[in-house]
């Protein structure tokens, strides 16, 4: 019998709790496959956030530390500085990273901490039930912005990859999405590249993944992926945002 597909050894054999159509499951798989391909499952340390992926430690096969809201980059700073030869990754959502943890991510990038952040941007607070995020698009409805996000009231959505790229400590930033197979393949390449760059010690590496949250967007999974490509990818340009020469 030929094996045509198998679950990555980077994941435990557990049923995921994520909603149908949620991108977390796919992104978990990509992160796990990259760890497996680089042979670092046995040494990697993953820092997971508050939000829907708070349970990531139940799914990944590597050692995992759950940080409280927004503090994953501070937690990872200490881990990487004391475990310099090991892969250290933070996995954070948009409320966690761009709102309550804005200071921690900015200063980790400023210091050029040599870990990787996988930033899940689905433009909404998922676990708490659809409140407005700093990345919620203008006009997008949220339970705390029932009339839709308005520039005058809430400001414009924050582009984290671009903002962090202004800092010298950031070596590599790319924005990807997982709405279809071609994009998913690019996303995996970006994550793997970030991990490889981290292990070569060049500086802070950042991959922003535009993600779907059909439950809180009030859409079917297919509608959500279409909306993501048409609206989110239009505001948050896909591709390499910064790559330091020589990396």
């Amino acid at each position: 019998m030929t094996t045509v597909y198998r679950k990555s050894a980077g994941l435990q054999d557990r049923e995921l709790h994520y909603c149908p159509g949620c991108s977390h499951g796919i992104i978990h798989k990509l992160v796990a496959e990259c760890m497996e391909e680089l042979g670092v499952i046995d040494t990697a340390i993953l820092v997971c956030p508050v939000g829907c992926s708070v349970f990531a430690g139940n799914y990944f096969a590597c050692d995992t530390i759950e940080a409280i809201h927004g503090r994953a980059p501070a937690v990872a700073t200490a881990i990487k500085r004391t475990h310099q030869d090991q892969l250290v990754v933070t996995y954070q959502g948009d409320g966690d990273l761009a709102s309550i943890g804005a200071a921690e991510i900015v200063h980790a990038a400023m210091r050029g901490e040599k870990f990787t952040t996988v930033f899940i941007n689905n433009a909404i607070y998922g676990m708490t039930g659809g409140q407005m995020a700093p990345t919620t698009l203008l006009g997008q409805h949220a339970t705390t912005a029932p009339q839709g996000r308005q520039k005058e009231l809430h400001g414009s959505p924050i582009r984290m990859a671009e903002m962090l790229s202004t800092l010298d400590g950031l070596a590599y930033a790319e924005r990807v999405c997982v709405a279809d197979i071609p994009h998913l393949n690019k996303a995996k390449k970006a994550i793997k590249k970030a991990f490889e760059l981290q292990l070569s010690g060049v500086g802070f590496t950042f991959v922003e993944v535009l993600s779907a949250c059909p439950t809180n967007w009030g859409m079917t999974p297919l509608e959500a992926n279409k909306w993501l490509l048409e609206n989110m990818a239009a505001y948050y340009p896909l591709g390499v945002i910064k790559e330091v020469q020589g990396t």
């Binding site: 820092v47 503090r71 937690v75 004391t82 200063h107």
Partner: peptide
């Protein structure tokens, strides 16, 4: 050893959390 002047007290105690959780 490792010394980091953190961006805030929140970051400092969470760095302690990270070091401690990884056994240091």
């Amino acid at each position: 050893g490792v010394f980091v002047q953190s961006e805030s007290e929140l970051a400092a105690i969470n760095m302690v959390y990270g070091a401690s959780a990884s056994g240091v």
